[in-house]
Deep mutational scan, measured.
Amino acid sequence: IGSLMYASIFGNVSAIIQRLYSGTARYHTQMLRVREFIRFHQIPNPLRQRLEEYFQHAWSYTNGIDMNAVLKGFPECLQADICLHLNRSLLQHCKPFRGATKGCLRALAMKFKTTHAPPGDTLVHAGDLLTALYFISRGSIEILRGDVVVAILGKNDIFGEPLNLYARPGKSNGDVRALTYCDLHKIHRDDLLEVLDMYPEFSDHFWSSLEITFNLRDTNMIPGSPGSTELEGGFSRQRKRKLSFRRRTDKDTEQPGEVSALGPGRAGAGPSSRGRPGGPWGESPSSGPSSPESSEDEGPGRSSSPLRLVPFSSPRPPGEPPGGEPLMEDCEKSSDTCNPLSGAFSGVSNIFSFWGDSRGRQYQELPRCPAPTPSLLNIPLSSPGRRPRGDVESRLDALQRQLNRLETRLSADMATVLQLLQRQMTLVPPAYSAVTTPGPGPTSTSPLLPVSPLPTLTLDSLSQVSQFMACEELPPGAPELPQEGPTRRLSLPGQLGALTSQPLHRHGSDPG
C-alpha cells in the first residue's frame, strides 16, 4: 500500500511539474524568437521594450494561443456562430445594431475584428487614413492633437468618421493612444458598406441611429477645401490634362476667341504652333527640309505637354522668318557652300510665315494684346468667377478644330508651292551661260556676264508674291485673308516669265 501511494503521488507530481515546464519551455522559446528578432533588426531601446511588454501581456492574456488560427480551423457556418458569440456584447448593447435580422448580425459579426491594445500603444496616428470604424468594449483611450489631450473615450464609445457622408476615406486629425488595456472591435469601411448593401432595409436605420462619439476626420483635408492638395495627390493619381488660365478682364471677355491653345513656353509662336517648341509643326519652317525628324516628334510632343491658354504674339512682318533660324542665316552668309535649293526654301518659309499670320487673323479676328503681368498667370479653374468647365471645354474643342483646319490648309498650300517650284525647275534647270562666239564683223562684242542661278530668282519672285499679296490685293481696312490656291498659281508664272525669257546656255562643266 505504501509503495502504491508513493507511486501515485510521485507520478502525479511529476506530471504536474512536467506540464509546468512544458508551458515555461514554450514561453521561453517564443521569447527567444522575439529577442532574436530584436537583435537581428537592431531595434532601439524604447521600441524594444514595448515589443517585450506586449509579448508578455499577450502570452498571459491568451496563454500563447493564436485565436485567429484556431477560429480559421472551423467551417464557415461554425465561424459565424463563434463570431456572433464573441461580439454578442457589442451587437446587443450598441444602439445602431438593434433591430437587425439574424442574418445581418451574422454577416456583421464575420466582418468585425477584435484588437487588444496595451497602455501607451498608439492605435491611430495623425494623418493616417481612416479605413475603419472603432467600437470600444473595454478600457479607455485618449485622443491628442500635438501634445494636447482633446478627448478621453471609454466603454461603448465610437470613434472614426461617418462613412455615409464621404465617398473616400479621410485623414485623422489626431493621435489615438490607449490609456489602459483596451479591447476594441473594428470593422473596415469596405466590409461595412458591403453588408449594408446586402441589407438595404437595415442601412437607413443604421446610419440614422449611429452616433460617433469623436469624429477623427480632418475637415481641412476634404477635397475642394484650401488644404486638400495632399489628399488630392493621394487619391487622384490618374489626373486628366491640367489647364491653367490667364485672368480675363471685362474688356477681354467681350471679345470671342481671344486665346489660343499652345504648349508651355510657346507664347511667341504662331497660331498653328503645336507639339515641339520653336515654330509651326514643332520646328522652324525654314529647317523643315533639312530635319525630317521633326514630323516624327510632333505626335509625342503634342500628347505629353499640358495645355496652356495664352494670348497671341505680336504680328510678324511678311518677309521675316518666324524666328530662331540660325540654319538659314548661316546659309545666307556662306552662300557659296550651301545647297542652291536652300534659297528657294527660304522664300517658301517667308510665304508660310505670311500665310500663317494672315490665317491666324482670319480665324481669330481680334487685335493683338500685350501679355498680362506675371502675377495674373496660372489662375486655377476652381477659383470664384471662372467660367463653367463645359464652356471652357467647348472653347478648347473649337480652337482645336480651327487649328486642324489651319494645319490642313497650310499643308495644301505648301504642296502647291512645291509643285510650282518643281515645275519651274523642270522647265528651266539651273545653269550658267557659256561665252558666246564673236560675230564675223570687226565690231565684236565682249563675252556675256554669267546669269544668276535660278534659286536666287525664285527667292526674289516669291518675296514679290508675298509683298504683292500682303499690300496690293487686300483693300484698305479689310481683314488680311489668305489668297486662294488658283490665284497664287496664276501669279507665280507671271512673275517668273520675264526672268526666264532670256536664252540660257548650259555650261560645259555643268553635270545637269
Rank of each mutant, 00 (worst) to 15 (best):
G323I: 12
I212K: 03
V348I: 15
K242E: 11
G227K: 10
E201T: 06
G512C: 06
S314G: 04
S225Y: 06
Y199N: 04
P493G: 10
D183F: 08
T416V: 09
G323E: 03
E407C: 04
G360K: 07
L163C: 10
E332D: 12
G323R: 03
L418G: 06
T456Q: 12
G282R: 05
A269I: 08
Q400R: 13
Q483M: 04
V465R: 11
P340S: 11
G282L: 11
Y134L: 03
T436R: 10
G494M: 05
K240F: 11
Y432L: 09
D510C: 11
D157R: 03
S509Y: 04
V465D: 14
P315N: 05
V259Q: 09
S383T: 05
L399P: 02
G270K: 07
E201R: 04
G160Q: 02
R405E: 03
S208P: 07
D330N: 08
I158T: 09
A269E: 11
K186S: 14
R308N: 01
S452E: 14
N378K: 13
E142Y: 03
P503S: 11
E393Q: 03
G441W: 10
L481S: 05
G265W: 12
F206A: 01
Q424N: 11
P476H: 12
P322I: 15
L481G: 11
G268K: 10
L165M: 10
R239I: 13
E332F: 07
S294W: 12
A261S: 08
N339K: 05
P475L: 08
D330G: 12
S346T: 13
A371L: 09
S208N: 15
G508Y: 13
P479E: 10
L196F: 10
L243T: 11
I351Y: 14
L163N: 04
P438Q: 08
S172K: 01
G323K: 11
P326C: 12
D197N: 10
S291Y: 04
S287T: 04
L421P: 04
R145N: 15
I212N: 03
Y166T: 09
S172H: 01
P493L: 04
I351S: 10
S358V: 09
D397K: 05
H185F: 07
L474A: 06
G441I: 05
G439K: 11
P430L: 11
T213Y: 01
G154E: 07
P372E: 08
A398M: 03
V176L: 02
N220D: 14
R145K: 13
L165G: 12
D191C: 03
S209P: 01
P315H: 04
F206I: 03
P292Q: 15
R386D: 13
I187N: 01
K171D: 01
P482C: 10
Y363V: 08
G263I: 12
L309Y: 10
S466A: 11
V435A: 12
E329A: 13
D252R: 08
L403M: 04
Q483S: 11
L381C: 09
L459Y: 14
P438A: 10
P476Q: 07
V176W: 01
E472A: 08
P429R: 09
G146P: 01
Q238F: 14
L418V: 14
G441V: 13
I141F: 01
F235G: 12
T458W: 06
M425V: 13
T458P: 12
L192Q: 02
A167N: 04
L421W: 01
L481K: 11
G347W: 04
V465K: 07
V451Y: 13
G512E: 08
Q364N: 15
G270D: 13
K242W: 13
P306S: 10
L399T: 03
F135H: 01
A151P: 01
G356P: 09
P300N: 06
I143Q: 01
R386M: 15
A267W: 07
G508N: 11
S452W: 14
I141M: 05
T456P: 08
E258I: 09
S290P: 15
L210H: 03
E201P: 03
L133C: 03
R248Y: 12
E329P: 04
E325S: 14
P388A: 08
V148H: 08
E393K: 06
N378E: 04
P442D: 08
C182T: 09
R506F: 05
S411A: 09
P226G: 09
S353F: 01
R368Y: 07
G160D: 01
K333W: 13
K242V: 14
L457M: 07
L403V: 07
P200F: 01
G127L: 03
S236Q: 10
P226I: 10
P223W: 06
S433R: 08
Y363I: 13
S313W: 03
R145L: 06
S501C: 11
Q464L: 10
T456G: 10
S349F: 05
L231W: 10
L427E: 08
Q255S: 13
A371W: 09
G497K: 13
L499C: 12
G146D: 14
T436S: 11
E393R: 11
G356Q: 07
D330K: 08
E298G: 11
L231K: 13
L179E: 02
L179F: 05
T373Q: 10
L427F: 14
G282Y: 05
E365G: 10
R241I: 09
S375V: 08
R386I: 05
R506C: 13
H185L: 07
R247W: 13
M469F: 10
F235L: 11
E254K: 07
R237F: 08
R246G: 12
S244G: 10
R308A: 06
G477V: 13
L231T: 12
A498Y: 11
P169M: 05
I187P: 01
S203W: 04
L210C: 10
E329L: 05
S342Q: 09
L196D: 01
P374T: 08
L454F: 11
S382L: 08
S260V: 07
L449H: 15
S287D: 15
R189P: 03
I212V: 12
S383V: 14
A398D: 12
H188P: 06
R368L: 08
R168S: 08
F245T: 14
Q495K: 14
A398P: 06
S349Q: 12
L406F: 05
L129Y: 10
Q419A: 12
S303V: 11
P447H: 08
Y199A: 03
R168C: 08
R274P: 08
S411V: 09
R168G: 13
P440H: 09
T219K: 09
K186T: 10
L130N: 04
S446P: 07
M469C: 14
S313Y: 11
M425R: 08
L129K: 10
L210Q: 03
L377D: 09
R386A: 08
F345M: 12
E232N: 13
F202A: 07
P479N: 10
L130D: 03
S358K: 04
D147Y: 03
Q400E: 04
G282M: 12
T408R: 10
P511R: 10
G146A: 10
L210A: 07
Q255M: 13
L196T: 05
L492Q: 09
R361W: 14
V417I: 11
L129P: 07
R308I: 07
I187Y: 02
C369P: 12
A470N: 12
P486N: 15
N350V: 02
R217G: 09
Q483W: 12
D510H: 15
P256E: 12
G360C: 11
A371V: 08
A151I: 03
Q364H: 08
T253E: 11
R246C: 13
T426P: 10
G227W: 10
R423H: 10
R239E: 12
E142M: 05
A415W: 05
S272Q: 04
E201Y: 03
F354R: 12
R308T: 12
S290D: 03
P264E: 10
A434P: 13
L309W: 13
E161V: 03
K155P: 10
C338F: 05
S172R: 01
D191W: 01
P450K: 09
D460W: 04
S290Y: 04
A344D: 07
D250E: 12
E325H: 07
T445N: 12
Y199G: 03
G360L: 07
T229K: 11
L454S: 09
G347L: 05
R359S: 09
S208F: 09
T219F: 11
S358A: 10
Q419G: 10
T437I: 11
F354M: 05
C369V: 09
G268L: 10
D191M: 01
Y363P: 05
N215S: 06
F312E: 07
R189Q: 04
I158C: 11
D191N: 03
S461Q: 10
